[in-house]
Nucleic acid binder design. Sequence first.
DNA 1: ATAATCGATAGATTGAATCTATGGATTTCC
DNA 2: GGAAATCCATAGATTCAATCTATCGATTAT
Lengths: 305, 305
Amino acid sequence: MNHAQLRAFHAVAREGGFSAAARSLGVSQPTLTVQVRALEDAFRVPLFHRRGRGVFATRAGAELFALTQRYFHVEREMREFLLAEGGLSRGRITIAADGPFHVIPLIGAIRDALPNLEVVVTIGNSAAVVDALLNYEAEFGLLSEYRMDDRLAVLAAMRHPIVLMMPADHPWAGRGAVDIDELRGQPMILREQGSATRRRFEAALAAARVTPRVVLEIGSREAVREAVAAGLGLGVVQESELGEDARIRPARIDGAELQATELVVCLEERRNSPLMRRLAPLVATATRDQGREPDAQQAIGGRRG
Amino acid sequence: MNHAQLRAFHAVAREGGFSAAARSLGVSQPTLTVQVRALEDAFRVPLFHRRGRGVFATRAGAELFALTQRYFHVEREMREFLLAEGGLSRGRITIAADGPFHVIPLIGAIRDALPNLEVVVTIGNSAAVVDALLNYEAEFGLLSEYRMDDRLAVLAAMRHPIVLMMPADHPWAGRGAVDIDELRGQPMILREQGSATRRRFEAALAAARVTPRVVLEIGSREAVREAVAAGLGLGVVQESELGEDARIRPARIDGAELQATELVVCLEERRNSPLMRRLAPLVATATRDQGREPDAQQAIGGRRG
DNA sequence: ATAATCGATAGATTGAATCTATGGATTTCC
DNA sequence: GGAAATCCATAGATTCAATCTATCGATTAT
């Protein structure tokens, strides 16, 4: 019974299979087969039922899993303690984000304050962010407020204005702002149901008693932008996701509270760890600079100028 | 931070020095120097103050030690769980005993029931037995009842009659039993103060209002036997420690409750572990055969025949 | 003063952890 | 029903890390 064997067993039990565990650990699948087999042979205790595709733990395996969870939990605590104790002068932290945009200033702030700390960012959808946190594969997560999970704790919130996208040749193209009432009857291009930006926008429309004319529903930010550029209609996007596209003109939307809230989160149980205590002020500073109530006109002008 | 480094740190913190820790772990001292140094360097956290001879933990080292204690505690739990789960078909258990005699039947019972289980026995004084249990170096301990410690739990008790030793040419040599009153005025050879056998014997003498004539006080079982064989006087010894010596004749001592109690113990916190649950019946059986109220005449005759 | 003990360092060695390549078995999908 | 995909097991090769021996300087005890 050694560390490699326990790690292999733990990952297989957690992931429900050897191949999935191998991907999770970043090792080859035969490694886990060999290690788990060695553990079972050493004590003559079967730990998994192998039935064709997939495996599941025996009773003994399930009981051992309860112990390995405690074991690796303490191991994480030690690693975090040492990392924080060493002033984060070296080591690695991982941030799981649901998009590439909002995470940039966070990375910048961490790198400025702790130049020798390696920062790894994984981009995925919101479910992947939650999974990464629950599996201890990431210390921090960036999530839309709508995807919040009870097992997570909020460290900071960034509010990003939602702006209108028009084609460059649109009659309103020169205006810095459009009133939400003006959108009545306008052809709109929206993202799929469930998009946080769309939910916010539809709520604002409903509050202003404006019924949109949805001409296209399409599954990604980039697709919305292309459709707007092609003149198919108007779109909405978070300001920070606007990008640099000469075919597109942005405009503030007046008469509505239109802000998407992105949360910086961590696992609830890790909220008070030494590591989080050390990094929380940093995160707060980074999000304060980025997420303050902005002057939309100035922000848009600044981005484009 | 890997397992070897944590093990090295833990041992050094526990033993209070690199050399002592190396002896405890059975590795060379440079191994620990290298591992602890690597751990300190990896996180830039000093863990020990080195001041000439001996070391002591820094604040960070003390906090980490609290974590490594939890860590290795869980590790022991897992090893015990797997060992017990595998029906003890293989593996190793260690018994720490305060003498070579009483442990023999225990080993025999374990080997009969679990032939593939490696049994390691360490012989030391009672303090060494307690230390071995507290440091998790042994699963079981054999102790005189007088050396019992609060942190230990009693699994079984073996009662061994105390018998008289006479030189082969002594007038009583043919007798199977001697009444305790007859010892009045007889020249006696006793072990040192604090010997469990001596304490029992003196209590029995006091109860019978017999004052012995102690002609020699000497520091070991073997020395007492040699002195008796040389005709210097009479001695007392636990029956099971009698040995085979043609120069010596034993006799039961009537008229007194003369039994030494040897305890089979384990660490209190491990009392309900799967391992102990599995081995407890074995220990009980072994000690019942060995430690029942014996017929002294028959027991002595059997041994000598 | 001298011997003993402690921890640090250097260089060599061995073994374990892991990899790639591949096979057999089962499930999924067309 | 058959083909493809996916899963776990096995064999052999490789690399890196854990450990050892030998030795040094420093400190403490005799």
